[in-house]
Design a binder for these strands. Structure first.
Lengths: 323, 323
DNA sequence: TTGTATGCGTTATCAG
DNA sequence: CTGATAACGCATACAA
């Protein structure tokens, strides 16, 4: 920076301003400094800038796994919201483990991220307190809560489960089953599904909770297991990937969907509209969650108090051919 | 840090050592410092550490998009390789645009990443030079090149395309078609596919190059377009997601696969083994690419010269039911 | 519109 | 095994 300043015949701080607040410089000065920057190939050291300004222009984002495309979409939205303001993303994967998430939160606090985006609303003990102490803007996503750490963008997984049950019962199906993961959000969908089923006169819902990933093969395997015990009339899967696996398994067994059995998914992934039969699902807005989380953080970082601390993006049951 | 030092009755540098090189401290001292750290809730400022040590313990990774699960797998592998050494990932998406990639490279150099993982081997002009000047360890992935910027982990997309054509021709198919994206790697697969087709006595290969994303619906739409012009005997798709879309479209039209038409995919995504019929594909090792890229970077950062600067992870044609 | 003085919180270096 | 001192490369606060 000193070299550039010398070459341009100005002081170091003027170089700093040329980079960060060019509008505060006289056009002539700005031109001279920029020429020197190009001539010398100067690349500002943002690490030093972060230390001096106490702002890193970095947002930490922690998802269970990027391999699940639904979280990838949220990251994509987040990244798009932050890019114009020159913020970058520090990425962490919790692999669905609270301690892992807590470790990442600590590491990101140490790295002085300016904000944090978390998945879900349940965290290891102590996380909340440490976040609070750090005074860090935080957005929780993919669920809802009456008492978020700070801000929240999501929807009610319990309500979404309820809506799925009501939809299937409304269609006349009685023997209901569920396939989902073991994470909190899947559990909430199941809880809502069971509750609305009971209310709708269906007291028993068979459920398979997977410990592993949620690939189509897992959905197919769970379907096999389910069919060994009973033949449900309608199957609700906690995500479309599992539902696709269920549809594939049905195809293999000659079970006609929806004539013999209905299948419903969750999330409205691209496969839902492409698969044959097209998949009835609960549409959620993964990308918008990221965009909105980014917008909330930017507002806060700009010193504005966001209008809403809790944004419910909702969901929509989308009927297609599979039910 | 000073507060912790005072509380533990040591100097600041001893606190630093307790955090970074605990084995260099006397057990008693270490215990005392750790107690003080916990008592005061001290979180080291890694930004300041980076400035002082000139190492950020951060690796930049730039992929076209995380929404494509194949790149998500590479990121997952990379993240796993780096985590034990307490490196974190700064994530950037190029959205298949060279200028976007170049901008991210500059930003990441400014943030003083310790290493960089790029997708592909073709980059905007100037990128190579700037990377060279920065003296940054770089790993290019997902392709191969005789002249990488620095290190490379991948496979030959041209050879993979050739292998696909040879496989299909070996099975007796003659009228070949291709559906793929417009990115460089898809183009290389097509080039190899066409070349081997020609060698195998098939001079004409119909090809559809998509500009948009590579979702199943895109594969289905391209299949529709293709079938309007000719009915190919065998269709090679540049990724399994597109191939799945093609299979769905065939199912809708009553085209039996592989009796009426063969479909072959690329990448061996989870859907390839789950879908009905199971999908013949070219297996590549997305996750290993990330793991290997991470290992190469760690070696270099540890001051060791990696045994190999170019790692060819290869590919494997995997025959399933769809051909 | 530009410049001066100062400090951000850590680690490298060298000494003991 | 522990400590004193001096950077690291910028941005803030204030002055001119």
């Amino acid at each position: 920076m000193e070299d550039v300043a010398r070459s341009a015949g100005v002081s170091a701080i003027t170089v700093s301003r040329a980079v960060n607040t060019p509008h505060k410089l006289a056009p002539t000065t700005l031109r001279a400094v920029r020429a020197a920057i190009v001539k010398l190939g100067y690349v500002p050291n943002l690490t030093a800038g972060s230390l001096a300004s106490n702002r890193s222009r970095t947002i930490g984002v922690i998802v269970p796994t990027v391999a699940n495309s639904i979280f990838a979409d949220t990251i994509d939205g987040l990244s798009q919201a932050l890019a114009p303001e020159r913020y970058h993303l520090l990425l962490g994967q919790s692999h669905y483990r609270e301690e892992q998430e807590a470790a990442l939160v600590d590491a990101f606090i140490g790295r002085r991220v300016d904000g944090l985006v978390l998945t879900g609303v349940t965290h290891a003990r102590g996380v909340r307190a440490r976040l609070w102490r750090a005074g860090l803007p935080v957005v929780e996503t993919w669920d809802t809560s009456s008492r978020p750490i700070d801000m929240l963008v999501g929807f009610s997984n319990v309500d979404a489960g309820r809506a799925a049950a009501r939809f299937l019962i409304g269609k006349g199906w009685r023997r209901l089953a569920f396939i989902g993961g073991s994470d909190e959000r899947s559990a909430k969908r199941l809880a809502g599904f069971r509750e609305a089923a009971r209310t709708g006169g269906v007291p028993e819902v068979a459920a398979i909770r997977l410990l592993s990933s949620s690939q189509p093969a897992d959905g197919a395997a769970a379907t096999v297991q389910l069919l060994a015990e009973l033949v449900p009339q309608a199957l609700f899967c906690s995500n479309d990937t599992l539902a696709a696996g269920a549809l594939f398994e049905c195809a293999r067994r000659g079970i006609r969907v929806p004539a013999d059995m209905a299948v419903m998914g969750f999330a409205d992934l691209p496969i839902a509209t492409a698969i044959e039969p097209t998949l009835t699902t609960v549409q959620v807005r993964a990308r918008e969650m990221g965009l909105c989380a980014g917008a909330l953080l930017l507002q806060r970082l700009a010193g504005e108090a966001p209008a809403e601390r809790i944004v419910d993006l909702g969901f929509a049951v989308t009927e297609r051919a599979s039910t």
